[in-house]
C-alpha cells in the first residue's frame, strides 16, 4: 500500500515537472502573445494541480492537504482571469496583429 501511494505521488510530481518544463519552453519558443499565454497557462493550471495532487497523496488527507487544495482553487481562478485580461489588453492595443494571426476573425 505504501508503495502504491509513493508510486502514484511520484508519477504525479514527475508529470507536474514535465508540464512546467513544457510551459517554460513554450513561453520562450513562441513569438505571438496568445500562444505564449496559452503555454504559460498550462504550467499554471495543469502543472500546479498535478504537483499539489502528488503532495496531497504523499501527505495523506489532513488540514495540510485541505490548504493545498485551497491554494490550487485560488490559483486556478486567478490564473485564468489574468490570462483573459492579458488577452483583452493585447486585443485593445494591437488589434491588427491579433486579426492577422487568428485569420481575420
Amino acid at each position: 500500500m505504501e508503495w502504491v501511494r509513493f508510486c502514484t505521488a511520484a508519477i504525479c510530481l514527475i508529470s507536474a515537472a514535465f508540464m512546467e518544463s513544457i510551459a517554460v519552453y513554450g513561453v520562450y519558443k513562441f513569438r505571438f502573445c496568445m500562444n505564449r499565454m496559452h503555454a504559460a497557462a498550462i504550467g499554471d493550471t495543469m502543472g500546479l494541480a498535478l504537483g499539489a495532487l502528488g503532495l496531497i497523496i504523499l501527505k495523506g488527507f489532513s488540514w495540510f492537504s485541505l490548504k493545498m487544495l485551497i491554494v490550487v482553487i485560488f490559483l486556478w481562478m486567478t490564473s485564468s482571469v489574468s490570462s483573459h485580461v492579458i488577452m483583452r489588453m493585447e486585443y485593445s492595443i494591437d488589434e491588427d496583429s491579433v486579426k492577422e494571426e487568428t485569420g481575420g476573425k
Binding site: V81, V85, R88, S92, I93
Partner: peptide, 11 residues
C-alpha cells in the same frame, strides 16, 4: 480606462 479592460464582467 481606454487601454484597460472596461467593466469586464469576468474580472
Amino acid at each position: 480606462r481606454y487601454l484597460e479592460p472596461k467593466n469586464d464582467i469576468i474580472i
